[in-house]
Write a protein that binds this DNA or RNA. Structure first.
Length: 774
DNA sequence: CAGTGAGCGAGCTTCCGCTTGACTT
C-alpha cells in the first residue's frame, strides 16, 4: 500500500476506491473522531478557552485501525468534505493519528466523479487552520451556550431540560406561531360565485365576483340586485406565462417534498435516503447545494432527449442562495439518470422516483402557458365577475414533475376556458353567496419548520432531523392530529328571483401531523425570552456566522470572538441563577368546594400537575398528575378536581380489594399486593371492576405460560466443538446461545426440535453475515 | 417497577455537527 485516503463516509470510500486503482486504499473516519467530553464543559474558560478534546468512545477501535493503516502507508490524503466541519475533521485526524505534515496531503472535491477526484489528487494543499478555528469557535460557542443555560433550566424549571442555539429557536418558532393563532380573530366573509352560459351556447363557465362581502345583509342586497339583470362578456385577456422547474433537491427541500407528496416524516425521509445512498442509487443526502456535476448535466440531457425529445432539454446551472450554505456536496440526485425507477422496496422506490423526477425536471424546458381572464359585466352593476383559466401550450418540465405546495387552501385554476368573443350575451344560471372564515396562519409541520430554520440560516442538513427529535423528546412540542370544529356557514342562493337562506356545515381543515407547543415548551420559552433573549434571537446564528466567516478568512482570532461573547453571557448566567425565581407556570384554577382551598395547575418535577392547597405552609398540599391532552392553560377546575379520584377502589375480587391508580410506569391495577399494568385503551378513571379482573386473569395466564416455558428452557441442543448449544426464548423470540454469543431463530423453527447440525448452520450463517457487515 | 410534587442532599440531566451501526434477550 502506498497511499491512504481518508474520507468521511464509508459509502463514499467504496466509490472512490474504484476510481483510484490499487495504489490507493480508501478508509472512512465516520464523521468526527474527536469531540469535547460529554460529561463536563471541557473548555478551559480561564485558559483562553482551550478546548479539551477526546476520542469518542465509539471511535476508539476505528482510530487504532486508522493508525495501523497510516503506518503501512507512504502518504496520507485527508479527503474530508470541503467545509468547516470537514476541515476540522482533517485536522483532528492529523492530530490524533500524529500525521507527519510532510507526508500528509489535504484534498477536496465536491462531487464524486472520476474527473473531480483525479483533479483533487493533482491539487493537494495543507490544512487551512483558519477554517479549523472557525469550526472550533462554532463548537465552543455551542457547548458554552448549551451547557451553561441548560443547568439553569434544571434548577429554575425542571430537571433534564435543555437549551441550545438551534433547538431553542425551533421551540420559539412553534410557541410564537401558537400565540399568533390564539390571538387570531377569525372573521366571516361572503364569497359570491356564479355560473353563466352563453345565450346561444351550452358550455357554461364558473365565475367569481371580484369582491367579498363582510355581512350576509350586504351579500343579500347584492344578490337581489341581480334579479332581471342582463350580462355579457366585457373583456377577454390572454397572457402568455412561463413556469420554471424547481431546482434539484437539497436535504431541506427533499424533506419538504417527501412530507407533502409521500407523507414521510423528516426522520423517515433521511433513513430511506440513507438506504438509497448506501446502495449507490443517489448522491449524498445531507447537502445544502443545488449544484449538479457536469456529468449529471450531460446524463440528464441524454435521458431527456431519448425519453421526451430534444425540445424538452434545457441545461440549467443552479446557484445556491441559502444562508450559510457550505456546499461541500452536490445536490441530491440519482447516480444513474437512465434509471427512472428501481425494483426495490416501496418507500425507497417512491423516494427515488421523487428524486429522479425533480432532478430530470430541473434540466427541462420551461412550461409555456396561456392565461385567460374573462370579465363578465352586468348592465346595471358596477361589480364584475371574473373567471380565469389556464391552457398549457407546451408542457416542458411539467411532463415529469410539479413541486408541491404548503398552501392548504389551494384553488384549482387549470380549467380551460371556452373561446368566446367580447360582448357575448350571457345567462346567469346560478348564483350563490357562501360564508367563509378567514384562516389563522398554519401550524408548523416538521418539514415546514425545517424550511423556516433553513431560511433563518439555523441548523445544518445533518441536524434538521435530530433537532426535531430533540424538541419532541424534551416534550417542548408534541406532534399530533387535531380535528377542527365544524362550523355552520350561511349560504344565500338566488333562485327564481328570490334569495333563499340555508346553512351548510363547513368542517374546517383538521390539523394533521402538526407541531403544537406543550406547557413545558411555553414556560421554557418564556423563561429564555426573559433572560436569554439575545441567544434565541432569530438573528443570533446569522450574527455569529459572520464572525465565524471572518475567522475563516483570517481576519479575526477565534478566542477573541468567543471571549467577547462569553464574558457578558456568563455574567448573565450568574445573575439569572442568583436572581430569578423558580418558574412553574402556575395558574390558579379556582377554589375546591370540598376543602375551600385554592386549586392550581403548574409544572412539577415530573411533568404538569394540579395542586389543592398552598405550598410553603405547614399543611402539605395534595397533588395529582395531569392526563395526556390536558394543559395548564386550558384545564378547568372541574377536570382538575376529577384527577384526585385516584387511587380508586373498584370492588372486591377473591375477597381482596381491587384498586386502580397511576404509577411511575403508567396506570395499573393493584390486587393482593400485586400490580397489573392497564392496557393502552384503558382509562384508570373509567375502568370497570370487570375489566380490571380480566386484566388480572390475562396476566396470570401469561405468567403461567412463562412458568411452563421455564420448565423446558434453557434447553441444551447438544455439543458443538466441545461447547454447549443452548436454545431459549426471550423478549425478542427464540434464540440460540453458543460461546457467549446469541443468535436469533426464525419464527417457524421449533427451538426444541432443532438438531445440532441445523444449529451449527444457523450459527455459521449469522457469523458470516456479521463479519461481512463489520 | 408501582409517587413523585415540602425539605435535605447525593448524583444525574445538557449543546451542535459530522458519520453509521447496533442486531439486543
Amino acid at each position: 500500500m502506498k497511499n491512504l485516503v481518508i474520507v468521511e463516509s464509508p459509502a463514499k470510500a467504496k466509490t472512490i476506491e474504484k476510481f483510484l486503482g490499487k495504489d490507493y486504499t480508501v478508509k472512512s473516519s465516520y464523521g468526527h473522531i474527536r469531540d469535547l467530553a460529554k460529561k463536563e464543559m471541557s473548555i478551559d474558560v480561564e485558559g483562553n478557552y482551550e478546548p479539551q478534546y477526546q476520542i469518542s468512545d465509539d471511535k476508539k477501535s476505528l482510530v487504532s485501525e486508522l493508525k495501523k493503516a497510516v503506518k503501512e502507508a507512504d502518504k496520507v490524503w485527508l479527503a474530508s468534505d470541503e467545509d468547516r466541519e470537514g476541515e476540522a475533521i482533517a485536522w483532528h485526524l492529523q492530530e490524533t493519528l500524529k500525521l507527519d505534515p510532510k507526508r500528509t496531503q489535504r484534498i477536496v472535491f465536491n462531487e464524486i466523479t472520476k474527473t473531480a477526484i483525479l483533479h483533487a489528487i493533482e491539487n493537494p494543499r495543507q490544512i487551512d487552520m483558519n477554517l479549523v478555528d472557525a469550526q472550533q469557535a462554532r463548537r465552543v460557542l455551542d457547548r458554552l451556550v448549551g451547557y451553561e443555560i441548560s443547568p439553569i433550566l434544571w434548577s429554575k424549571i425542571k430537571p433534564a431540560l435543555s437549551a441550545g442555539r438551534v433547538q431553542s429557536v425551533a421551540v420559539r418558532l412553534i410557541v410564537e406561531r401558537e400565540e399568533e393563532i390564539k390571538h387570531f380573530e377569525s372573521k366571516p366573509y361572503f364569497r359570491v360565485t356564479a355560473q353563466f352560459r352563453p345565450v346561444d351556447g351550452n358550455k357554461s363557465l364558473n365565475a367569481e365576483l371580484s369582491r367579498h362581502f363582510a355581512t350576509a345583509d350586504e351579500a343579500e342586497v347584492f344578490l337581489q340586485g341581480l334579479v332581471g339583470e342582463s350580462f355579457k362578456i366585457g373583456k377577454i385577456e390572454t397572457k402568455p406565462a412561463r413556469r420554471t422547474p424547481a431546482p434539484p433537491f437539497t436535504t431541506s427541500t427533499l424533506q419538504q417534498e417527501a412530507s407533502r407528496k409521500l407523507g414521510f416524516s423528516v426522520a423517515r425521509t433521511m433513513q430511506v435516503a440513507q438506504q438509497l445512498y448506501e446502495s449507490g442509487y443517489i448522491t449524498y443526502m445531507r447537502t445544502d447545494s443545488v449544484n449538479l456535476s457536469e456529468l449529471a448535466l450531460s446524463m440528464a440531457k441524454k435521458e431527456i432527449e431519448a425519453e421526451y425529445g430534444a425540445e424538452y432539454v434545457k441545461t440549467r446551472r443552479y446557484q445556491t442562495k441559502t444562508k450559510g450554505a457550505q456546499e461541500a456536496h452536490e445536490a441530491i440526485r440519482p447516480t444513474n439518470m437512465a434509471a427512472q425507477s428501481l425494483n426495490i422496496d416501496s418507500a425507497q422506490r417512491r423516494l427515488y422516483e421523487l428524486i429522479w423526477k425533480r432532478t430530470v425536471a430541473s434540466q427541462m424546458a420551461d412550461a409555456e402557458i396561456e392565461k385567460t381572464e374573462i370579465t363578465i359585466v352586468g348592465s346595471r352593476q358596477t361589480l364584475t365577475f371574473q373567471c380565469s383559466g389556464e391552457q398549457v401550450k407546451f408542457d416542458g418540465f411539467l411532463k415529469v414533475y410539479l413541486e408541491g405546495t404548503d398552501d392548504e387552501e389551494q384553488r384549482e385554476s387549470s380549467t380551460m376556458l371556452p373561446r368566446l368573443p367580447e360582448g357575448t350575451l350571457m345567462t346567469l344560471e346560478h348564483c350563490e353567496a357562501a360564508e367563509h372564515y378567514t384562516q389563522h396562519p398554519p401550524r408548523y409541520t416538521e418539514a415546514s419548520l425545517v424550511k423556516k430554520l433553513e431560511d433563518l440560516g439555523i441548523g445544518r442538513p445533518s441536524t434538521y432531523a435530530p433537532t426535531i427529535s430533540t424538541i419532541l423528546k424534551r416534550e417542548y412540542v408534541i406532534k399530533e392530529d387535531r380535528e377542527a370544529e365544524p362550523r355552520n356557514c350561511t349560504v344565500l342562493t338566488l333562485k327564481g328571483g328570490q334569495v333563499k337562506h340555508s346553512v351548510r356545515t363547513e368542517k374546517g381543515y383538521s390539523e394533521k401531523g402538526k407541531l403544537f407547543p406543550t406547557d413545558i415548551g411555553c414556560v421554557v420559552n418564556n423563561f429564555l425570552m426573559e433572560h436569554f433573549a439575545n441567544i434565541i434571537d432569530y438573528n443570533f446564528t446569522a450574527t455569529v456566522e459572520k464572525d465565524f466567516d471572518e475567522i475563516a478568512d483570517g481576519k479575526k482570532e477565534w478566542r477573541k470572538v468567543i471571549d467577547r461573547f462569553y464574558v457578558p453571557f456568563h455574567k448573565n448566567i450568574r445573575q439569572t441563577q442568583q436572581n430569578s425565581q423558580r418558574t412553574t407556570g402556575s395558574r390558579l384554577l379556582g377554589v375546591d368546594p370540598a376543602s375551600g382551598k385554592n386549586v392550581y395547575a403548574k409544572i412539577g418535577r415530573y411533568g404538569t400537575l394540579v395542586q389543592i392547597g398552598e405550598t410553603n405552609t405547614d399543611e402539605k398540599p395534595r397533588f395529582a398528575s395531569m392526563k395526556k391532552g390536558q394543559s395548564i392553560e386550558t384545564i378547568t377546575l372541574e377536570d382538575a378536581l376529577g384527577l384526585f379520584a385516584l387511587p380508586r377502589t373498584l370492588g372486591q375480587f377473591e375477597d381482596k380489594d381491587v384498586t386502580v391508580s397511576i404509577g411511575k410506569f403508567g396506570p395499573y391495577v393493584r390486587h393482593n399486593s400485586k400490580f397489573y399494568s392497564l392496557g393502552k385503551n384503558d382509562d384508570p378513571y373509567e375502568v370497570s371492576l370487570e375489566r380490571a379482573i380480566e386484566i388480572i386473569k390475562v396476566k396470570r395466564e401469561a405468567e403461567e405460560q412463562k412458568e411452563e416455558l421455564k420448565k423446558v428452557y434453557p434447553h441444551e441442543i447438544g455439543q458443538l466443538d466441545g461447547d454447549a448449544v443452548v436454545s431459549n426464548i426471550g423478549r425478542f423470540g427464540p434464540y440460540l446461545t453458543y460461546r457467549g454469543d446469541n443468535f436469533r431463530l426464525a419464527k417457524n423453527i421449533d427451538p426444541l426440535k432443532l438438531s445440532v447440525e441445523q444449529a451449527a448452520d444457523i450459527i455459521n450463517g449469522a457469523k458470516k453475515k456479521r463479519s461481512k457487515k463489520g
